[in-house]
C-alpha cells in the first residue's frame, strides 16, 4: 500500500467564501473536512455549519455531500449497531441533554 503522509504538509486550507476555488490540495482537504460528522453548536444550542463547508464552491459542497454519504455508510457498516458517526453524535446529544 502507499506511503502514509508525514507531518510536513502545509497548514491552512481555505479559500475565501465567494472567491476563487482553493488550490487542489486545499480543496481536497476542505472537502474531507466538510464531509466529517462533527458539527459544533452555537451559544443557543443550534448545530452550526462546518467552517470548511463555507470555504467550498458549489461543486465542492456537492462533492462533500457525496463523500459524507459514503463515509456514513462505511461507519455504519463497521458499527455493531449499524450506526454512523452522525447517528452516534445525535444520540450523544440526546443522552447528554437527558442526563443534564
Amino acid at each position: 500500500m502507499s506511503d502514509p503522509v508525514d507531518d510536513e504538509a502545509d497548514e491552512g486550507a481555505g479559500g475565501a467564501e465567494g472567491g476563487a476555488p482553493p488550490p487542489g490540495d486545499d480543496r481536497a482537504a476542505l472537502i474531507e473536512a466538510a464531509a466529517g460528522a462533527y458539527r459544533a453548536r452555537d451559544p443557543l444550542g443550534a448545530i452550526r455549519s462546518h467552517p470548511a463547508w463555507h470555504d467550498l464552491d458549489e461543486a465542492g459542497r456537492e462533492e462533500a455531500f457525496e463523500r459524507a454519504r459514503s463515509l456514513r455508510a462505511l461507519e455504519a457498516a463497521l458499527d455493531p449497531d449499524g450506526l454512523s458517526a452522525t447517528a452516534r453524535a445525535v444520540l450523544a446529544r440526546i443522552r447528554a441533554a437527558r442526563d443534564g
Partner: peptide, 10 residues
C-alpha cells in the same frame, strides 16, 4: 450546494 446538509440533518 447551498446548505451544510450534515448540520441540517443532525
Amino acid at each position: 450546494a447551498r446548505v451544510d446538509t450534515e448540520a441540517a440533518l443532525q
